[in-house]
């Protein structure tokens, strides 16, 4: 339980009380202590540039790419999918909802679906060849790899020959599901082993609880 909970006090503007944390735990694979530990992580991320209790794109970018500036197609997609309300910031609830999908015990269906939505850049319900090319070019630029256009086309041809089972030139959800089940390594980044023992990774919430109690 969390009767000694740090958050068991009047709600602040972006604060969460015990009931909120219990609800988030009930809605996810995390228990209340884990939600508290993730709140520590959230606070750290959400005050790294703008200290307003919300994760801005620059803050996510700083955490993932170690630089707040510059364009990154993939970071934009991740941010958009985390930002359920599409209001340009990630709230704690949204953070929990998204990380829940990355839990080692989350259903594979959820991971498959999230990855599909990530790669369906234009959100048409299909991963199209043009989108794949755009993403391949983006990763080559990001990793400073040089491949000839010919080789890029060859990689995409080969990928579509494998993934586009119905041969209509685009990857639909069914194609995608069958494809990633044949190539499970493609979902590797959809699981974060850290989430299994997040309270060990972020034990500072316990310390915070004690600080609050002694006041």
């Amino acid at each position: 339980g969390c009767f000694e909970c740090y958050y068991n006090r009047p709600k602040k503007k972006f604060g969460y009380d015990c009931a909120d944390l219990a609800r988030l735990a009930a809605e996810s694979r995390f228990n209340v202590n884990e939600v508290e530990a993730l709140y520590e992580l959230f606070k750290k991320l959400s005050c790294s540039i703008i200290d307003d209790g919300l994760i801005h794109k620059e803050e996510l970018q700083l955490a993932l790419l170690q630089t707040p500036s510059g364009e990154n197609l993939f970071l934009d997609r991740v941010f958009d999918l985390f930002d359920e309300k599409q209001n340009g910031v990630i709230e704690f609830e949204e953070f929990i909802h998204a990380l829940n999908i990355f839990h080692p015990y989350a259903p594979i269906e959820d991971k498959i679906d999230f990855a599909f939505r990530l790669y369906d850049l234009r959100q048409t319900g299909f991963i199209e060849r043009e989108e794949v090319k755009q993403m391949v070019i983006a990763i080559l630029i990001e990793s400073e790899m040089r491949l000839s256009d010919e080789l890029v086309e060859e990689i995409i041809d080969k990928t579509f020959a494998d993934a586009d089972a119905d041969g209509d030139g685009k990857i639909d959800k069914k194609d995608w599901k069958e494809f990633v089940i044949r190539h499970p390594s493609l979902l590797k980044n959809m699981t974060l082993p850290y989430l299994k023992d997040i309270t060990t990774a972020f034990p500072s919430f316990v310390f915070n609880t004690q600080v609050e109690d002694s006041e």
Binding site: N72, F74, Y119, V132, A138, I139, L151, K158, L186, A201
Partner: peptide, 25 residues
């Protein structure tokens, strides 16, 4: 010339998609 990688294997290498970095202290 080596066999080209799967496009999604390449794509999934992006740092922007590797959320494990959120947990780096």
């Amino acid at each position: 010339q080596p066999t080209p990688m799967n496009a999604f294997e390449l794509i999934s290498m992006s740092k922007g998609l590797n959320l494990g970095n959120l947990f780096d202290e």
